[in-house]
Design a protein around this nucleic acid. Structure first.
Lengths: 244, 244
DNA sequence: GCGGGCGTCCCGCACGGTGGGACGCTTCTC
DNA sequence: GAGAAGCGTCCCACCGTGCGGGACGCCCGC
């Protein structure tokens, strides 16, 4: 984070200084978060406004709508999302639970689309948000069908704990990934959040590479994993075929 | 478009060279679309890769997932979308038609969320996409509750035609906006796309300013505007109240 | 009334962006 | 199979512009 060189890195540091539920930020706060000198952060913010990426609101500044428009064109999420949404909709209809679509980025998953269900548990996941791959169903489903160096990246990043049941031992995770590879379904039994369970299945591309994963999540007391697992698996297989 | 000054404007020109359904672009194509010299476009693209906004795929380059993450944090769409989705879902359930949520940006509307309906018509709208405000129901709904200078911006931009029924006369549009202001509902009778009709209602903030609009759209032959209008109006009023 | 934090702006120095052009490569066409 | 046309990549001498410490006036809370 701190003070990188190149103009663009600094500009990106200002953009990424905005967190998930910030509205407008001032120059001082921007400087603090980006690690840039105050006058530099301020000048870059004004440049970003002029470039159309940030918007002014009074003396503060916030992320501009143009960034949203550009973000919707990102191929990694767009092609997957457009193809997946109908199947996700069916999956929610059939299971009456919350449906997730996510992709892997480094050692974390990024949620691309979420179809919520009324009465479902509050999820730690948000569209555009990140969670460590190894504590989520979607993450483990993707990892099980990814090359060894990708799995290595995750383990090297450190298997941090989210709940008391999170898998934090590398050997244990490796064995679980083998089981997932054999079954085609990954499970999360209160490993990402207390009281929340989830069944996930990978979305595979033409060459068998993992593009992302689908999952169904709900209360541990109100959802039977054995019942939803075949549904998720089927939806993921069908979706994978349509991408071929 | 062509060759603006400042580094950031050039970088943004490269980012906006990517269109809605592009995947990867090469250096020459990037230079052509951004109006930059080839070697400049190429170098900036490499800088953007290093900054994490673009991703390499072979010798080509595409929009990176980080842009999607940042885009999801943009307040103008996030707060509106998060508050609106439950009501949009109810609206689709009740009407069995396609539901739109959009905001105004300059002389155009930007679609923030779309809940499609099976069997519905193919829409010219996409999430993150733009359409001229005056040819859409959501656009007219927002304009009717916006200050005069905003309406002026739209008229000055030129009232281009989308279909044979699009409103292109400034006086006619002004009169229609008055009717909308009185009724609280705007209509689009095949003005944006042939065979497509739509009823829309504005989402208003605490001071009565238009933050965006909700709409319900469907085939002109399969949807009765008089039946869906009260539903959209009610949903928009309820949503407006929750934002207060 | 006072102090701390804020947004804003200035300005001389030096550093890094600029882009025409060259190079080697692939892909068609004749 | 020769040629042309397009591509991605890289170099380098010039010069424009980003840099940030510091100063200023302001608003707020103690």
């Amino acid at each position: 984070m701190s003070s990188d060189d190149s103009f663009l890195r600094r500009a990106v540091a200002v953009l990424t200084a905005f967190r998930a539920d910030d509205d407008g930020l001032g120059a001082a706060e921007l400087a603090r978060r980006s690690g840039l000198p105050k006058s530099t952060a301020h000048r870059i913010a004004l440049d970003l406004v002029e470039a159309g990426l940030l918007e002014r609101q009074g003396s503060r500044v916030r992320l501009g709508l143009r960034l949203f428009e550009i973000g919707q064109r990102v191929p990694r999420q767009r092609v997957l999302r457009d193809a997946a949404v109908p199947y996700m909709s069916d999956l929610r209809e059939a299971t009456r639970q919350t449906v997730h679509l996510a992709v892997l980025e480094g050692a974390e998953v990024v949620y691309v689309e979420i179809l919520g269900s009324p009465g479902g548990p509050p999820m730690p996941s948000k569209v555009g948000g990140r969670l460590p791959a190894h504590v989520t169903g979607v993450g483990k489903a993707i990892l099980a069908f990814s090359p060894p160096e990708v799995v290595r990246t995750v383990m090297d990043a450190g298997l941090v704990r989210a709940t008391g049941r999170s898998v934090t031992a590398p050997g244990l995770l490796a064995r679980e990934l083998e089981t997932i590879r054999a079954e085609g379904v990954a499970y999360d039994r209160e490993e990402s959040g207390n009281g929340i369970v989830c069944a996930a299945s990978p979305v595979l591309g033409p060459e068998g590479e993992a593009l992302g994963a689908l999952s169904v999540s709900g209360w541990s007391t109100g959802m039977r994993l054995a019942a939803v697992a075949p549904a998720v698996h089927t939806a993921a297989l069908t979706l994978s075929r349509t991408l071929g």
